[in-house]
Design a protein around this nucleic acid. Structure first.
Lengths: 151, 151
DNA sequence: TATTGTTATACTCTATAACTATA
DNA sequence: TATAGTTATAGAGTATAACAATA
């Protein structure tokens, strides 16, 4: 039926499908907190780029400025981050985690690792480690992670 | 900054991000053909499940019936698939690839493998093979692939 | 003039619910 | 009464363009 040249045999197809499944699983776990995966992506980006501007975060996450605004609005309403107007360039807003944001980040990180345990349940510890280190390489190469974020 | 307990250090986070990037890249390559990734997912599902009903395809792709209808409408308009009313149960429609659909599937499969080459450019052949076989395991476990589709 | 962030808007994706035709 | 497919509709996600404040 399928073979080496089919779509289903491409690694990218598997990455797309598994990535979507993983996102959905994470979204379910996040729902009781009133958060969505995009909010966690931003929290992670803020943690990795302290005092970044909204545009800095936008390029780190490959999102357009208008998309960043709505995510930041949500997280500011939840008191997880804080906008501070830059004193030298008053057009810019520095985004920083609040204490509440830091504790929220810990909670959602725990949920993310629970998702790992579910999605990767059938892998041995060695396979999990191999998968992770290969994915870090791919992510660094694609500019998804910065050099200090491979954890 | 980040550490073993951060979101960015979770394998699921990487799978989500890389999966999204891969999908976007595939979508760009597909655009000149007037297709989107979802159409290719359906073509692949039809190839893997010949003469399936729309509901069969829906469960294979984890999509609700109404979502399947619009994808099938598009592909039928493009003459890539054919709806045939089941003779024993006239509520059901068997979906089959046309000759045009088969050749389209070949073209998009080639594009999918081009995406692989881009996304996985920094990996050795051995790493690519290791990644692929681990992802097949994860996908089978998550019910994303059927047993005969690992290519 | 150019840039940062914002608003308004549009398009796609996905899901739910009501509907039809068949069983 | 239940099921396969369809339609209508609504919500979330993501992009573009016009705009205000500031440089």
């Amino acid at each position: 039926m399928t073979n080496d040249h089919s779509i289903a045999a491409s690694t990218g197809f598997l990455l797309s499908k598994i990535g979507q499944t993983t996102t959905n699983l994470f979204a379910e776990k996040l729902a009781p907190l009133g958060l969505r995966p995009k909010h966690c992506g931003l929290l992670a980006a803020v943690a990795g780029l302290p005092s970044a501007s909204q545009q800095d975060l936008g390029s780190a996450m490959s999102l357009v400025p208008s998309a960043i605004v709505s995510i930041i609005d949500d997280l500011e309403t939840a008191r997880a981050i804080r906008r501070t107007q830059d004193v030298v360039d008053r057009r810019r807003h520095s985004i920083e985690l609040t204490e509440k944001g830091r504790s929220l980040l810990k909670r959602v990180s725990k949920l993310a690792h629970e998702v790992d345990d579910q999605v990767l349940a059938s892998l041995s510890a060695a396979e999990r480690a191999a998968l992770h280190s290969i994915l870090v390489r791919v992510a660094l190469d694609a500019g998804i992670l910065q050099g200090d974020q491979q954890g």
